[in-house]
């Protein structure tokens, strides 16, 4: 179902970049990166919950599960997380060993 690239991300450990702050808004949150001065919108509250949960979760898979995201939506969420990573809002902390499943 999910493509390989997606599964890879699921096993990695990601976190909020230290110089990024989230500001809650009715739709979700604004994310601001004080270093590169980029402003991004997290368009749903669930995405905000996932992003906030990244730091605590051992890997992206657990963060999605903890955020209550249905498994069929994971590819969309992984894409959203990759977008956030493209502007350094979040980043992989350490690539997991990737034993495969």
């Amino acid at each position: 179902m999910a493509c390989a690239a997606c599964t890879e991300v699921l096993d990695e450990s990601w976190g909020l970049t230290p110089s990024v702050e989230l500001r809650p808004e009715p739709f979700g949150a604004l994310a601001y990166h004080f270093g590169n001065r980029r402003l991004t919108f997290l368009k749903t509250r669930q995405l905000v919950a996932v992003v906030r949960g990244l730091d605590e979760a051992p890997d992206v898979r657990s963060a999605l599960a903890a955020g209550g995201v249905a498994e069929r939506e994971w590819p969309a969420y992984v894409a959203a997380l990759r977008n956030l990573a493209a502007t350094d809002m979040i980043r992989p902390i350490a690539a997991a060993a990737g034993e495969g499943r």
């Binding site: 500001r23 808004e25 009715p26 991004t40 997290l42 368009k43 995405l47 939506e73 894409a79 959203a80």
Partner: peptide, 21 residues
């Protein structure tokens, strides 16, 4: 920008104003 979105669009939220500028 993320693609995960439901309900009112971001634009609509902006039109209704945010908690801070």
């Amino acid at each position: 920008m993320t693609t995960v979105a439901h309900g009112p669009t971001l634009l609509e939220h902006f039109e209704h104003g945010l908690d801070a500028p």
